[in-house]
């Protein structure tokens, strides 16, 4: 009998080999499922983690915070999410760009979904962990480019000192601030001429 005759086996094989981390926890944070992606990145094989407490296996996990996330899913039957922008990673895995990356660890997005039983109550929580390193790297480059652009538009190209545009913008901001707080402020302007002989 081939794999196509057993849809259950097919689904299991896909879960095992999907390029995303998938694991399932019961109410006591014991691992019920641990796919190959998790095994390869954590160095802990499925057989070694099944039935064991996740926080004992990974003492470095921030327990109060992560258990709260898991608890919300059990209590509300809701989805929950963890974004790399707020928490760079759940598990400190190596990323898949060891040569071209220039970052120290994998950035991760995670989704927690309730696995409901026949009664409609969540009996386990499935965590799907997605590598967001590429997005994080691009975002980092974008922020750096924006910062450089903002800086260069405020400076004179030849001397590198702040230009008139920057001065005017700053004056406007200070004027508005003084207006908001009812302050008075003074502006001192001096002209320096530096001539190289």
């Amino acid at each position: 009998m081939g794999v196509l005759d057993q849809p259950q086996d097919l689904a299991q094989t896909i879960v095992e080999w999907l390029d995303e981390g998938i694991f399932v926890l019961d109410r006591d944070y014991r691992v019920v499922l641990w796919n190959n992606y998790m095994a390869h990145h954590s160095g802990k094989m499925s057989a070694d983690v099944l039935g064991r407490d996740l926080f004992e296996l990974f003492p470095e996990l921030p327990k109060p915070w992560f258990s709260k996330k898991v608890k919300t899913v059990f209590t509300l039957g809701n989805f929950a999410f963890i974004a790399w922008e707020n928490r760079p990673y759940l598990f400190k895995f190596a990323h898949n760009r060891p040569i071209t990356g220039g970052v120290e660890h994998m950035y991760q997005n995670s989704m927690l979904l309730p696995l409901k039983g026949a009664q409609g109550r969540p009996e386990a929580v499935c965590v799907v962990l997605v590598d967001a390193t590429d997005v994080a790297m691009v975002q980092g480059q974008l922020h750096e480019a924006m910062r450089k652009l903002a800086d260069s538009s405020n400076r004179d190209g030849l001397t590198g000192i702040y230009n008139r545009r920057c001065l005017e913008e700053r004056m406007r901001a200070e004027f508005e601030r003084a207006g908001r707080y009812g302050d008075t402020f003074s502006w001192r302007c001096s002209t320096w001429t530096i001539s190289k002989g």
Partner: peptide, 21 residues
Amino acid sequence: AGGEAELLLDVANVLSGACLG
């Protein structure tokens, strides 16, 4: 800053999950 954003996301997620649920 990250924690505050996370809080916003968490609260929004709970509210929208509850309403649509």
